[in-house]
Computed example of a mutant assay.
Amino acid sequence: MKINKKSKTIYLSSAKKRRTKVTTKGLAIVLGGVSVAIGSVFAFLPNAYQVSVGGEVIGVVNKKEYIDTALQTVEAQLEGKYKTEVEIEGLDPLKHVHAKKKDMIDPNNLPTYLRENMDITIKFQRLLVDGEEIAIIESPQTLDLLEDELKEAYFDDKDVNAKFSNDVKLEEVYTTEDKLVEMDTLVDLCKKRQRKEVVYTVAPGDSLWSIATKYNLSVEDLTDANEGLTNNLKIGQEIKANVRVPVLGMELVKEAP
């Protein structure tokens, strides 16, 4: 620094300030780099919702409302099919993720994926015969249809006046669709014969022969099962019989005289 005492003016002895010259090409490179950086950030931002059940990923969709719509569709399908209540559970909390468009589920297929993977239970009826569960049926109306089918099977006549010969009850149960038993299978289950000990109470006009015939047995079968049994029967006397009977039988209803 040089000082002129007379004028008391101060001069700064320094080099001229250099300025960096920015070219168009350089600016383009800088802007391009910034664009790439921004693009890289956006390329990994969450753009979809991951659908999973029990920790297992089903797939991804780009809109949350697709999942709600799919769940409503599944519920409506099953309620319409079975005319009963439906409970849907098991969907994990949604996770916001990044996904490529080609990896996203078609919203039209989402209801099918949910039905195949979620815990869906439907209110059906448990059929109990003599206190034991025989099958899961759709509704009380199914029991009416079963009664007609068994009349046809046992008496060759759906219009015959007959009733179940066992204690039959229905209980509501929420279970999966695959537990439901179709009618053909249900009829076969009911017709299946099992060995059972029954106790018959002697009525007026009964004989060993008539009782044996009733249970498709021989008189000897009855005498073997009842020590000291003779043809001298008494009204009200109890006779044991080891018989093979259907799981669910039918008996004719005696009409009043």
Rank of each mutant, 00 (worst) to 15 (best):
V202C: 07
E65S: 15
C190L: 05
D221A: 09
E182T: 12
V60C: 14
G54S: 01
L45E: 10
Y11W: 02
L248P: 12
R126C: 02
M1Q: 10
A99R: 10
I67S: 02
N108E: 15
F124G: 00
I239L: 02
D68W: 02
V202K: 06
I3L: 11
T84K: 04
K158C: 05
L229R: 05
V30Y: 13
K2A: 10
A15V: 14
T84L: 02
A135F: 02
G236E: 08
D178R: 06
F124W: 05
E220P: 04
F155M: 03
K240V: 00
I88G: 03
T201H: 01
V243A: 15
Q77W: 07
T69Y: 08
Y113A: 11
V129S: 03
H96S: 13
K102W: 02
D68N: 12
T69E: 14
V30L: 13
K95A: 09
I134F: 05
Y174F: 11
T223K: 15
V253D: 07
S207G: 15
S207W: 14
L186S: 03
D156T: 09
Q237D: 12
L143Y: 00
T20G: 13
L150H: 01
P246H: 02
V74R: 00
I29L: 12
K2N: 04
W209N: 14
A15D: 09
E182W: 00
P140Q: 03
L78Q: 04
K83T: 03
V74S: 01
T69P: 05
L186D: 07
V202D: 11
Y113R: 12
H96P: 11
L127I: 06
L186G: 07
Q237E: 15
K64P: 00
A203S: 15
E87I: 06
A43V: 05
K17A: 14
Y215P: 01
V199R: 10
T112P: 04
A162H: 06
K21N: 12
I120T: 06
A37S: 04
V173M: 05
E75P: 07
